[in-house]
């Protein structure tokens, strides 16, 4: 059991990373990667949603008729997302305001749907929970990395702290949409072209 969980950890974070290898679920979260703080909050929300949706759907998996499977999945996922939304509004109002509609868009994040569908509905609750957790982590690591680079180059700061002096000319493009596209492409290129072949050889 422990061994199995360990390999799941490695698989979901490294060799089968949701973003780098499967290129899933970048829709809703890529948009907030121009600030590290927002990205971290968003990623916590996503990890919370994906692990608990997987967990709760796995508990009721035998009761779900196959025809309405999708609808029930979406219902349960929206349920957890609304909880995240309410919690943010109550305890982190400013971040909630900045994230705007993107919190709600966790519902349609392909990772959440993909993990519950591919793993949660076939496996018992605890492994489903862990699978969601590790997938969410693998996903978050990449996004936080992107956010650090974007905020550093685009605003000269990380997590709101100015790091590059006032002479730093901000790369506006990094804050805007194209910056995220190029950066993600570059990271995928490096990982797929260089690191993954090495890991696979081992």
């Amino acid at each position: 059991m422990v061994k199995k969980n360990n390999s799941m950890f490695k698989e979901n974070i490294i060799t089968n990373n949701p973003i780098l290898v499967q290129v899933l679920g970048i829709c809703s979260t890529l948009a907030v990667t121009n600030s590290v703080k927002n990205t971290i909050v968003m990623c916590i929300g996503l990890i919370f949603t994906v692990s608990l949706s997987s967990f709760s759907l796995s508990i009721i998996r035998k009761l779900i008729p196959s025809k309405v499977r999708m609808i029930i999945e979406v219902l349960v996922i929206s349920f957890w997302v609304i909880i995240v939304d309410l919690a943010l509004k109550a305890y982190l109002p400013e971040i909630s305001k900045q994230l705007g509609p993107y919190v709600g868009l966790i519902i349609t994040n392909c990772i959440v749907m993909g993990r519950t569908e591919a793993f949660g509905l076939q496996n018992p609750p605890i492994p489903s929970f862990l699978d969601g957790l590790t997938s969410g982590l693998g996903y978050s690591i990449v996004l936080i990395f992107i956010a650090i680079i974007r905020e550093l180059l685009g605003a000269g700061s990380i997590y709101g702290f100015k790091l590059l002096g006032s002479n730093w000319v901000s790369w506006n493009i990094m804050i805007m949409a194209p910056g995220a596209f190029f950066l993600l492409a570059l990271i995928i290129w490096i990982v797929k072209g260089y690191f993954l072949p090495k890991i696979e050889k081992k």
Partner: peptide, 25 residues
């Protein structure tokens, strides 16, 4: 019936949570 029951359960839980966080929001 399954869909309706599940939605009712989920929405009532949300309503309870909302009533707790409402004032704070």
């Amino acid at each position: 019936i399954v869909v309706i029951i599940i939605s009712i359960i989920l929405i009532s839980i949300l309503a309870i949570i909302y009533s707790f966080t409402q004032d704070r929001i």
